[in-house]
């Protein structure tokens, strides 16, 4: 069970003066149940990468598949495969269109060909999942909601499709810390309880460090780093800085403390561990 890119290259507007090779010979496998963060600066090719992963774009060279099914095909099988990969775009609330929250969330399940009962169950489930009370919100216009609520409706619309793989492009962009935490809590629940594979495009090293189990760094159309966040931030710091990325604050703080002679273990990946270690060193409770 995995999604695969084999020697994928992608060129925008080939044969025109605006031709641009956005992906260069990428091979990648993401297994069901993984949590992968994709990082890279704007224009690195990371958006093109995920759009090839879910069959929205078809590789110029090479091929993209899900469990062996070529995603670029026109067959029913290929269509089914694409339906198993959900995608939440950046600012997904800008894609809401229906008159009610209910109808908008039901759009995806209906397109999958589910009947009324199944769709209804999916909508209720998805709304519960993103923490929107059915009675209160189902009949309301999505456009009367706050920004954070609209984003949750949009995410629910994708979750209701029960994807095996969920791609999220900058899910926390433009949200304040409160709404951000709520969105990530939902994503983590999908990952942990439903075993949905999560592929998250992000600019935030903090988010990558905190949530992902695997991290891909895209630079100039290639994947230059592929590893566990904890290891990447420790071992590849130089390389990350060189390509304009950063390391999370907690690594910087730990380094600053080490510079002053505080002996801390290498594997400090979050604030809690750091605090516990400092306390231990200083003999505090």
């Amino acid at each position: 069970m995995s999604m695969k890119l084999e020697h994928v290259s992608y060129t925008y507007m080939p044969g025109t003066p605006y031709e641009k090779e956005a992906l260069k010979d990428i091979s990648l496998e993401i297994k069901k149940g993984e949590f992968v963060a994709v990082i890279g600066h704007t224009g690195s090719g990371k958006s093109t990468l995920v759009q090839n992963l879910n069959g929205l774009l078809h590789p110029t060279k090479g091929n993209a598949s899900l469990d062996g099914v070529d995603l670029s095909g026109k067959s029913n099988e290929a269509k089914m495969a694409r339906g198993r990969i959900g995608m939440v775009f950046q600012y997904p609330e800008h894609q809401l269109f229906a008159e009610t929250v209910y109808e908008d969330i039901a759009f995806g399940p209906q397109n999958l060909g589910l009947n009324y009962e199944e769709t209804d169950a999916r909508v209720k489930d998805a709304m519960k999942f993103v923490g929107l009370d059915f009675e209160t919100y189902a009949g309301r216009s999505p456009f009367s909601l706050s920004g954070g609520q609209m984003r949750r409706v949009a995410i629910a619309g994708v979750v209701a499709m029960n994807p095996d793989y969920l791609i999220l492009d900058e899910p926390s962009a433009g949200l304040d810390p409160g709404s951000r935490d709520a969105v990530f809590a939902e994503v983590m629940e999908l990952y942990k309880k439903r075993g949905t594979a999560i592929i998250m495009v992000t600019h935030s090293m903090e988010d990558a460090a905190q949530f992902a189990k695997r991290m891909l760094v895209v630079y100039d159309g290639r994947i230059i780093i592929d590893g566990k966040p904890g290891e990447v931030f420790l071992k590849e710091k130089e390389q990350l800085l060189k390509v304009g990325m950063d390391v999370p604050e907690v690594y910087k703080l730990a380094d600053a403390l080490r510079d002053k002679g505080l002996r801390l273990p290498k594997e400090i990946t979050d604030a809690k561990t750091l605090l516990a270690e400092i306390k231990r060193r200083k003999g505090l409770r």
């Binding site: 759009q51 879910n54 929205l56 339906g83 990969i85 959900g86 995608m87 775009f89 997904p92 800008h94 894609q95 759009f107 995806g108 397109n111 999958l112 619309g157 994708v158 499709m161």
Partner: peptide
């Protein structure tokens, strides 16, 4: 272009 992609990803035809 972005909206078409987003709705396509939701299975729109």
């Amino acid at each position: 272009d972005r909206i078409i992609k987003a709705q396509t990803a939701r299975g729109a035809d």
